[in-house]
């Protein structure tokens, strides 16, 4: 369960101040697939980074399983990201000199898994996203969609509580985007909590719940009635 409470994020640029989040509050139940949507610049990514312990808000709190992550120190947040959270970025964010399987292995090894075990889990993860035939390809030898699937495999390898995805389909064509979303839907079906940011409403509507942002404020919050 995630509780976002009165979240404010201000950016100072020179003399002017920009308020990217103007006191946002909502809750995400366990197992929910939430899409955050809105126009470019509405504050979607900013919100996701605050929720995902990648940034510190100006004000407000984010509770993950009852703990306020805003009050955590850097070390504790790193530990939290490693153990409990998974990330999928728009540009895949893979390490270029590691193969697909090694990219998935790295965080597992950091968790203390022996190399063999990390490799086994990683291969299993990659199989789940349909990449069992590209285990030893480096990112440069994979298509965009395949790279994004590797990054999803990395995000789910350690069974995280929550997956955060920032525009995971923005760099992909519609066919590949579909594949990626199908993976998310499949994970959701098995009970995975997912928070996905997307400006493409055709993908947002596939989620269980849609929060619309405009100018740093929630303008709508609706359950998908499918």
């Amino acid at each position: 369960m995630i509780i976002v409470e009165n979240l404010v994020k201000k950016f100072k640029t020179g003399d002017s101040e920009l308020i990217a989040l103007k006191g946002v509050s909502f809750k995400v139940a366990e197992g929910q697939f939430l899409a955050i949507t809105g126009k470019s610049g509405s504050g979607k990514s900013t919100l996701l980074y605050q929720m995902g312990a990648l940034d510190f808000p100006t004000n407000g709190s984010v509770y993950i399983d009852g703990k306020d992550i805003v009050k955590m120190g850097n070390r504790e947040r790193t530990e939290l990201r490693l153990m409990e959270l998974g990330y999928v970025f728009q540009d895949y964010a893979l390490l270029p000199e590691l193969t697909a399987v090694e990219n998935v292995m790295a965080p597992l090894m950091m968790q203390g898994a022996p190399k063999k075990q990390a490799r086994m889990i990683s291969e299993e993860s990659l199989r789940k996203v349909g990449l069992e035939h590209k285990l030893y390809n480096k990112p440069s030898q994979l298509s965009g969609g395949e790279q994004q699937r590797v990054s999803i495999a990395r995000a789910i390898g350690h069974n995280p509580k929550i997956i955060f995805a920032d525009e995971p389909t923005a760099n992909l064509d519609s066919e590949t985007s579909k594949i990626v979303l199908d993976i998310f839907l499949g994970l959701h079906k098995k009970g995975q909590t997912i928070v996905m940011v997307t400006h493409e409403s055709e993908y947002a509507v596939l989620a269980e719940r849609i929060i619309r942002l405009s100018d740093g404020e929630i303008i709508s919050d609706e359950k998908n009635k499918q």
């Binding site: 490693l82 959270l85 990330y87 893979l94 790295a106 965080p107 950091m110």
Partner: peptide
């Protein structure tokens, strides 16, 4: 990215 995904 490494720090982001929790590598210390």
């Amino acid at each position: 990215i490494m720090k982001g995904i929790g590598i210390n």
